[in-house]
Amino acid sequence: MTLPKSKSTPESAVEKKPIPWHIVFFLGPALLIYLTFSVYPLLDTLILSLYDEQKGQSSFVGLQNFITLISDDNWSSAFWNALANNFQFFIIHMLVQNPIGLLLAVLLSSPKLRFSGSYRTFIFMPTMLSVVIIGFVWQLLLSPIWGISENFLYHLGLDHYFDAWLGKESSALITLSFISVWQFVGIPMMLIYATLLNIPDDIVDASVVDGANPMQTFWYIKLPLILPTIAMVSILTFVANFNAFELIYAVKGALAGPNFSTDLMGTFFYRTFFGFQLQEGSATMGAAVATLMFLIILVGIMLFLFFVQRRIQRFQF
């Protein structure tokens, strides 16, 4: 990445001049806004996590907030619970959302498919809606009181499987995960679909000429080519899932009931930071939770890049 000094054209011209004004012009505005309203606040938050604030007095406490978070009983059980739930939430997305997205993308990209534009538009629609709407709708649909899902299952002869899914500890998180999958399946679908459309026809044709059946064509030609996209989708899912907050907040409130069974890192952060009902919020503890989320996401991405991305890269076209 470090460049040899002898490289030609614009950059050598740049080095001669004291200030490369065109770079400043192009990069300056974006960098200024980004540094001021994103990088600085995030760093400030990291620093804040090393302090404790009591009655307006702030004092440096080092890693004490983190030690409290992972070892003090009052905090640690909530923290580990939120983390475990978050992994469950993520795994459900990986196992359900991305395969469904892949399937829909493959179907949508079938040659000469009629109405593919309409399908694409419709299936992507839930992604466009805000959680305020989505939370309300799904509570209405799943509510045992108004009976929509129950009637539906009744017509399929499955009504004895119906339960107050959103209200039971054992099923609330899974149900919310599925709602989230329903909302966001459009994103992996679109990204994979776009990659599939990008596969040059001649590659596919060549494999057909070589006598590969469609299944083999998919398995040996298309799949390797869309693997980088699937990898990107996975990483986007990971990041999005570990930031998830809105849906849980809209449906279950900040207490993420029943009995914290739907608590994710995002809701835990919110409660710690802003407090809830009679529990007072703490900016410094909140900052500590935010910092841990930051680290978890970072470690997740590093692991991913290290173990997965490296192997996939070579297939890129």
Binding site: Q139, L142, S143, P144, I145, D163, G167, K168
Partner: peptide, 9 residues
């Protein structure tokens, strides 16, 4: 309580 009161808001 009503059916499914666990999900009743």
């Amino acid at each position: 309580l009503g059916r499914g009161y666990q999900a009743q808001k």
